[in-house]
Simulated assay, not measured.
Amino acid sequence: MRAAHLRPAAALAEVEGLCAALLRASSSRRRRRLRAELAHAAGRLAALAAGAAWINRYQGGKS
């Protein structure tokens, strides 16, 4: 796997892990905290994806 794919892959794994934890959470306090963490992680993933698309577009690659 190319090094450029490692950060998005790690961000996606974090989102997946938080989703799984949210499904198993038993207390409303924990679910609330996990939803907040998930929102931040999803934002990071979106930013990485947008950055990758921008780089591909301006370096002549496919997005």
Results as ranks from 00 to 15, higher is better:
Arg2Ile: 13
Ala46Glu: 15
Ala41Phe: 03
Arg31Trp: 00
Arg33Thr: 14
Leu18Val: 01
Leu45Trp: 09
Arg31Asn: 00
Ala21Ile: 02
Arg33Ala: 14
Gly17Trp: 00
Arg32Pro: 10
Tyr58Ile: 01
Ala25Phe: 10
Leu6Pro: 04
Gln59Val: 10
Leu45Gln: 09
Ala52Glu: 03
Leu38Thr: 05
Arg35Phe: 03
Ser26His: 13
Arg29Ile: 00
Pro8Gly: 01
Arg30Tyr: 07
Ala41Arg: 06
Tyr58Met: 02
Ala41Ile: 01
Trp54Ile: 03
Ala3Asp: 05
Arg31Lys: 06
Leu48Ile: 10
Pro8Ala: 00
Ala13Ile: 03
Ala4Pro: 05
Arg57Pro: 00
Glu16Lys: 07
Glu14Pro: 06
Ala25Asn: 10
Ala41Cys: 02
Gly17Leu: 02
Ala20Pro: 05
Ser63Gln: 08
Gly60Val: 03
Leu6Asn: 08
Gly17Ser: 06
Ala20Thr: 08
Ala36Cys: 05
Leu45Asn: 07
Leu34Cys: 00
His5Pro: 01
Arg24Ala: 15
Leu23Arg: 12
Val15Pro: 05
Leu6Gly: 03
Ala42Leu: 15
Val15Ile: 04
Leu45Glu: 12
Ala47Asp: 09
Ala52Ile: 08
Arg24Phe: 08
Tyr58Asn: 13
Glu14Lys: 14
Arg32Asp: 08
Ala39Thr: 07
Ala4Cys: 01
Glu16Gly: 10
Arg30Asp: 15
Arg44Phe: 02
Arg57Gly: 01
Met1Gln: 11
Ala9Ser: 12
Ala25Val: 07
Arg29Leu: 03
Ala9Phe: 13
His40Cys: 12
Ile55Val: 15
Ala21Val: 03
Ala25Gly: 08
Ala47Thr: 05
Ala39Asn: 05
Ala52Arg: 04
Ala25Thr: 12
Ala11Arg: 00
Arg24Asn: 12
Ala42Gly: 14
Ala52Pro: 01
Trp54Arg: 14
Ala25Cys: 13
Ala53Tyr: 02
Ser63Ala: 10
Asn56Asp: 03
Ala3Asn: 07
Met1Lys: 13
Arg31Gln: 02
Arg35Ala: 14
Met1Cys: 03
Arg35Cys: 11
Pro8Glu: 00
Arg31Leu: 00
Leu45Arg: 06
Ala3Ile: 02
Leu6Ser: 05
Arg31Tyr: 00
Gly61Ser: 09
Ala9Met: 13
Ala36Gln: 11
Leu18Thr: 01
Ile55Asp: 15
Ala53Lys: 06
Leu45Ile: 08
Ala50Lys: 06
Arg2Trp: 14
Gly17Gln: 04
Ala11Met: 01
Ser28Asp: 14
Ala41Trp: 04
Ala39Arg: 12
Ser26Arg: 14
Arg30Ile: 01
Ala50His: 07
Ala49Asp: 08
Arg24Lys: 13
Leu38Ala: 00
Gln59Leu: 08
Gly51Tyr: 09
Lys62Ala: 11
His40Thr: 13
Ser28Glu: 15
Arg33Gly: 12
Ala3Glu: 07
Leu18Ser: 07
Ala42Gln: 14
Ala50Val: 13
Glu37Cys: 07
Ala41Leu: 00
Lys62Asn: 12
Ala46Met: 09
Ala46Arg: 12
Arg2Gly: 15
Arg35Gly: 09
